[in-house]
Design a protein around this nucleic acid. Sequence first.
RNA 1: GGCUGGGUGGCAGAGUGGUUAUGCAGCGGACUGCAACUCCGUUAACGCCGGUUCGAUUCCGACCUCAGCCU
Length: 319
Amino acid sequence: MVPDNLTDPGSVLVICGPTAIGKTAVAMAVQDALGGREHAQLISADSALIYRGMDIGTAKPTQQERQRYPHALIDIRDPSENYSAADFVADADTEIARAIEAKKKPIVVGGTMMYLKCLLEGIADLPTTDIPLRRELERELAERSAQSLHDELAQQDPEAAGSIHPNNHQRLLRAMAVVRATGRPMSVLWRDNATGTLFERTGLHHESVVMLPLQRNQLHRRIAARFRQMLSMGFLEEVQALMNRGDLTRDMPSMRAVGYRQAWGHLIEEIDETTFIEQGIAATRQLAKRQITWLRRWPDALEVVADTPDQTIQAILKR
RNA sequence: GGCUGGGUGGCAGAGUGGUUAUGCAGCGGACUGCAACUCCGUUAACGCCGGUUCGAUUCCGACCUCAGCCU
């Protein structure tokens, strides 16, 4: 018997956890428990799964799995394109509304904590990154110093400047761009232009299932095994094919994904194979660690500590 | 057996007679439009024994060990 809070058609189920813990398996099991694809809609919350052609290294659900368990928000971008937390919130809101419309329970599954946080807590309505302005700021950064740009930000938006280190160019330039484009501090806009929480935007409640490893070692072992399995499935060939396109560069968000970044370095003979494998596994472990840090502080979570998907499913269904 | 060159923190890799790089990993932290991102802080080493010296990771010697070459 499935508990009410999971079947409640007027609420969103969120399944999150670190990489390699088995979120997909749990999501599929929950869909089955709800009566299949007619009654549930899986929605991916993952900044890497959005990219077409990046399948092996992202541990994307297979074609067969996706036929029985269709996921929204997978393969929606080309690796040359950008995507952001704001894009995700907009897309996810749309998918959730569509699922409700079709009388399906929305199930958001993923490990990109920033996306989930913004989905649940909201994100301000700020101007999108303006490329020409961004270029201009990059030029200024090169001509002046980061410190001088940071000083300027401190004058116009002290609050944002306070939380952005001068060396953090990525965030420094974004905050500057917002000020330049709107004439108002980003920190003020964030309060004034908040779009509201998921409930405020859609009228839907949510329930979070947070998967955490019982033993960190066990997860680490799974990560290492999965990475080697990716290699035998042709991960390097996948990355080589992406490089062969000629239009992708290693500083694009897609190519900076865990594993892809290291594979790129190996394929241009920057690092040898052993180092590539070591670094790839280590980077994945670090990703899991960062995710777990977020998850530990997840508000109102239905927390499930389990080492295997089966344990998690049992724990969810028992509630 | 002989000769030569090496042995530096988990790995890679500089360097110095005293204040002991750096990168990656590890650990802690920040983060509202690149978040599998970006950034900040931090732990940790000089193969072994002896000698020279006020002081040795650095100089000298023996030893152990690795690589290459020679017989």
